[in-house]
Amino acid sequence: MLSSTKFELPGVNFSTPKQVKEILHNSLKSIGEFDDCALLDYPNHCNVGDHLIWLGEIFYLTDVLKTKINYTANISNFNAEKMEQQIGNAPILLSGGGNLGDLWLHEQNFREKIISRYQDRPIIILPQTVYFSEPENLRKAANIFNNHPNLTLFVRCHQSYKTATKYFYNCRVFMAPDMAFQLVGMPGLKSQKQQKESILFLCREDKELNQEFEADYIGIDQITVEDWSAFRYKHPQPKIWTIPGMIKVVSEARKQGNLLPREWISRQLWKYLHSYTDKFEQIYDPNMQRKSWNFMHHAVYQFSQYDLVITNRLHGHILCLILGIPHVLLPNAYYKNEYFYESWTSQISFCRFVKSATQIKPALQDLLDTKGGLSTMY
């Protein structure tokens, strides 16, 4: 049986995002060192939170661990033969997030398939929230995980750690913050700010929505309710360097109210002139990595237009921390948001977590009073 180790730093202060990033680095030292690897389960969808995680992972692996990522794939385009050609028996890393469990079975089934198939090398699951609603699904996952001779699991909250150490007893288990904290302190974020006179409510509408916190129930005026702006771009865009393509892009952007010169200029600078863009050339499938980079710009630009944010998305919370935006975090449908906040971010001065809709207004006012200089917005 492998030993499971809880990451603890008694007396450590988590009062700034930078300090949480430092804890992330200390936690990930448990990975060890290796020259190259595969990073699997690329988020082939528009949920920006998973793209922030992915970017944090590739920047950590390349910049901090100095590891070459010689193969990346999403669930649909994973090719076992190609991976073998690219990495041999090097370690496999599985992307982190909030899908280790039975809420998002597509990702969990892929994870279990990889762990079952590749017993000849280390497999590392980057920071995840663990949540199973059905005991049978948990037992199935535990059997697969425990049968692997060298499986390391990082978890994002104390409840996930409790579950993982109890059921995944043959794995090495460590606590670590979310991989998106690797993005804290990166250049090119401060210049994005263009505040609107309203509050952004970034509200998810999927099966993780806590029904008590729907937009109609929170009672806040001067509020803009929307999800990630990237969801507006679900369909492939035509190549902009063709005349028909340019006409279509301009037409669609005008319909959506997105073709502001400021936004367009910001996007071009981000895509082509940001100092981080050269990093993608050193990673397998650079275009895949650039796709995540573009999704990040959508979110950074969206958030930077607001002085205050309310969100029920965990990565709405984390992006606010990265950008320094005061905000209120709401519960999701299970314990993910609350326990992550309790584990890592509750000491940060410009965020609040509330457990009922009646607490939102006082929390916003408290943030305004703490920040100072902002007028009451509701």
Rank of each mutant, 00 (worst) to 15 (best):
Ser116Phe: 01
Asp227Met: 00
Ile114Thr: 04
Tyr169Ser: 13
Gln119His: 04
Tyr233Asp: 15
Lys234Ile: 03
Met179Ile: 06
Tyr131Ser: 12
Pro127Leu: 14
Glu136His: 04
Ala164Phe: 03
Thr129Trp: 07
Ser116Tyr: 00
Arg117Ile: 10
Gln194Thr: 09
Gln237Ala: 14
Arg204Lys: 09
Met186Trp: 11
Tyr169Thr: 01
Asp221Val: 09
His158Glu: 12
Ala180Asn: 03
Leu202Asn: 05
Pro149Ser: 07
Glu197Ala: 14
Asn137Tyr: 07
Tyr169Pro: 00
Glu205Gly: 06
Ile199Met: 14
Val184Met: 01
Met246Asp: 01
Thr163Cys: 03
Phe181Ile: 04
Tyr233Lys: 12
Lys140Arg: 14
Ile220His: 10
Ala180Asp: 09
Trp241Ile: 08
Gln128Ser: 04
Trp228Asn: 12
Thr242Asp: 01
Thr152Gly: 00
Glu212Gly: 11
Pro127Lys: 10
Met179Leu: 13
Asn170His: 13
Ala176Tyr: 00
Leu202Ala: 08
Ser198His: 01
Arg172Cys: 00
Arg156Phe: 01
Val184Ser: 03
Lys196Gln: 12
Arg139Cys: 11
Ile114Asp: 03
Glu212Lys: 15
Ile243Leu: 15
Phe154Pro: 03
Glu208Gln: 13
Gly188Cys: 02
Asp120Asn: 15
Asp216Thr: 15
Tyr161Ala: 05
Glu136Met: 05
Phe231Thr: 12
Gln159Val: 14
Gln222Cys: 12
Asn210Trp: 05
Leu189Met: 13
Pro135Phe: 10
Trp241Gly: 05
Met175Gly: 12
Asp227Lys: 02
Tyr167Val: 05
Lys207Gln: 15
Ser229Leu: 12
Pro238Phe: 03
Tyr169Met: 01
Thr165Gln: 04
Asn170Ala: 11
Gly219Cys: 15
Pro135Arg: 08
Ser229Trp: 04
Tyr131Leu: 08
Asn137Met: 08
Phe231Cys: 08
Glu226Thr: 14
Pro127Ile: 13
Glu226Pro: 04
Thr224Leu: 07
Leu126Cys: 07
Gln192Pro: 01
Met246Trp: 04
Lys196Leu: 09
Lys248Ile: 00
Ala230Glu: 10
Trp228Ala: 14
Tyr161Trp: 06
Ser229Met: 09
Phe168Gly: 07
